[in-house]
């Protein structure tokens, strides 16, 4: 067992964990933040994407011990308050960019980092950046629209 401390959404979460514990399990079970979902546990679907020091990573492909002393952001930290949404969340809501919503947290974490790097992307660039996140419900069309709408508003 290893003692670790990880800053998640600004709060330090400590735990004594087995070295094999996945980062995603630490976030979900130790920190109690279940908005990060496991869709495949082998790094393909992207549903478990969180941000590590601002960069998107798959929390099923990292061990919790590797995040010791680092800064993690999850979907729960996006909205500014209980009564408001982040502009990207709001744009997804208005664009019907989610159906079942299972993949949505991973997509939001991927796209939030993408828009910081590329604030004014073309639909083609959005599609390329989105290609590491699987969505089985929407056919992606409305997600691309939602990301573009958010980009317009966040300028």
């Amino acid at each position: 067992m290893r003692k670790i401390a990880v800053q998640i959404n600004g709060r330090v979460v400590e735990g004594e964990v087995e070295p094999r514990l996945l980062l995603g399990d630490f976030i979900r079970d130790n920190a109690g933040l279940t908005g990060t979902h496991f869709g495949c546990e082998h790094g393909v679907c992207g549903a478990c994407t969180v941000q590590l020091d601002g960069e998107p990573v798959r929390s099923c492909l990292m061990f919790a011990v590797q995040a010791h002393g680092r800064r993690i952001a999850t979907v729960e930290g996006m909205a500014p308050s209980a009564t408001e949404l982040h502009p990207l969340q709001q744009a997804f809501h208005e664009s019907h960019a989610l159906q079942c919503g299972f993949c949505t947290p991973g997509i939001l974490m991927t796209m939030e980092a993408f828009l910081r790097a590329e604030p004014d992307p073309s639909p083609e660039r959005i599609r390329a950046a989105l290609a590491g996140n699987l969505c089985r419900c929407t056919g992606y069309q409305n997600i691309v629209t939602g990301v573009r709408l958010a980009a317009d508003r966040m300028k």
Binding site: R28, L33, T34, G35, T36, H37, F38, T74, V75, E76, M78, A79, L85, Q89, F92, H93, E94, H96, L98, C100, G101, F102, T104, P105, L108
Partner: peptide, 19 residues
């Protein structure tokens, strides 16, 4: 109208079975 379902799903506040 915008969906009633969206709010918790967008905020990571849904309850799927693994949650």
């Amino acid at each position: 109208p915008l969906r009633k379902e969206d709010w918790p799903l967008l905020r990571g506040e849904g309850t799927f079975i693994a949650d």
